[in-house]
Structure formats: structure tokens, C-alpha cells
């Protein structure tokens, strides 16, 4: 039996962070909204009957998969069009997620309002690798445990600890002038 009220509360609690996470990566309001909506639909359809403590890692696993799918689609499209401009033989076998450039142009309205500490943090987050980025947001922002983060990222707990540690190191290094 599904507890609709609990599911509603859970989704209401994570939807804004989920949107922000998607937005970090895809930089497009419509696509970020589609990603969040698909994630909610999938969670409710497939996992609503699961125990409540399993919802957060399941939700973020679906979210990360959707974000990665969208990101890969963008990368493939960019690569396809780049064939007509110049050759990229050495990049052809690279994983688009792992080696993705830090960003492509953000929407102006998303950048408006990013000031001070938030702006500095967001810029520093852009420099992280996708896995470090995920580990940091899930652990530090979403507050998932190492085990739940590992389930969401579909990797070992050791990998989560490594990505998270490196993410914090990198962020502190980048932000030291602004934050310390």
C-alpha cells in the first residue's frame, strides 16, 4: 500500500534541489524540468511501494541517470556537429561524462542573481568532475549517507568517499580566496 502523503512530502522536499542539480548540469530550464518530472514519474510508477527510506537513493539514482542521458545526448549532438568543423580523433573514444568540459553557456537568467558566495561556489562546482560533483551534492547538500550515495551513484562506498574527499579538496582550493 502506497502512502501518498508521505510520497508527496518526500517529493516536495527534494524537488527544488533536484531541479537545481539538473540545472547545474544541463543549463536549460526546460530540460531540467523534464528531467525532474521524468524522475518523479518513474519513482512514483516503479518504486512508490518501496519502503520510504529507500526513496532518496532511488530518486537520485533515477535523477543522475536522466541527467547523464541528457548530457550524453548533448555531447553526441555537439560531437556530430563538430565533424563538420574540425576533426577530433583523439577525443572520439573518451567518455563524454567523465571528460565533459566544465560547462557550456549558461542561460542568462540562471546566472542572474548568482552573487557572492553562491556564485563563487557554483563556479567552483563547475570545475569538478561529474562524479565529484554528484558525490558532493548528494552527500553535502542532500545529506545522503555514504551507503545511500553509493546506491544513488551506482558505485562502491569507497568510490563515493574518494570522489567526495577530492571534491571538497578541490572546492576549498578554488574558494579559498572568497571563503577563507
Amino acid at each position: 500500500m502506497t502512502d501518498t502523503t508521505a510520497l508527496n512530502q518526500f517529493l516536495a522536499g527534494v524537488e527544488k534541489r533536484a531541479f537545481a542539480m539538473a540545472m547545474f548540469k544541463v543549463k536549460d530550464t526546460e530540460e531540467a524540468m523534464d528531467i525532474v518530472q521524468d524522475t518523479m514519474m518513474m519513482l512514483v510508477k516503479k518504486y512508490a511501494t518501496k519502503p520510504q527510506e529507500q526513496w532518496p537513493p532511488l530518486f537520485y539514482r533515477i535523477l543522475q541517470n536522466r541527467i547523464n542521458d541528457t548530457y550524453r545526448k548533448h555531447s553526441m549532438r555537439a560531437r556530430f556537429f563538430s565533424i563538420f568543423t574540425h576533426d577530433h580523433d583523439e577525443d572520439r573514444d573518451a567518455d563524454p561524462i567523465q571528460n565533459a568540459p566544465a560547462s557550456y553557456s549558461a542561460e542568462p537568467d540562471f546566472q542572474v542573481g548568482m552573487q557572492g558566495a553562491t556564485a563563487a561556489l557554483k563556479q567552483a562546482l563547475e570545475l569538478l568532475s561529474p562524479r565529484q560533483h554528484q558525490a558532493f551534492l548528494l552527500r553535502a547538500w542532500e545529506g545522503l549517507s555514504v551507503a545511500a550515495t553509493a546506491r544513488a551513484m551506482q558505485c562502491s562506498q569507497g568510490s563515493v568517499k574518494t570522489h567526495y574527499f577530492r571534491a571538497i579538496q578541490s572546492l576549498r582550493e578554488e574558494l579559498k580566496d572568497d571563503w577563507i
Binding site: F19, A20, V44
Partner: peptide
């Protein structure tokens, strides 16, 4: 605090609410 401080705006909040209702 820095991440939470960002306001997504009324339009995004409303659309997220609609998406949640549709899912539920």
C-alpha cells in the same frame, strides 16, 4: 547555505508542483 539561498522563482516552483501532482 549558499546552495539553499538561491530562489528558483515562482514560475519554477509552480511547475515543480504541477510535475509532482502529475506524478502522484
Amino acid at each position: 547555505k549558499a546552495l539553499e539561498s538561491e530562489d528558483l522563482g515562482e514560475d519554477i516552483s509552480q511547475r515543480l508542483y504541477s510535475a509532482r501532482r502529475k506524478a502522484l
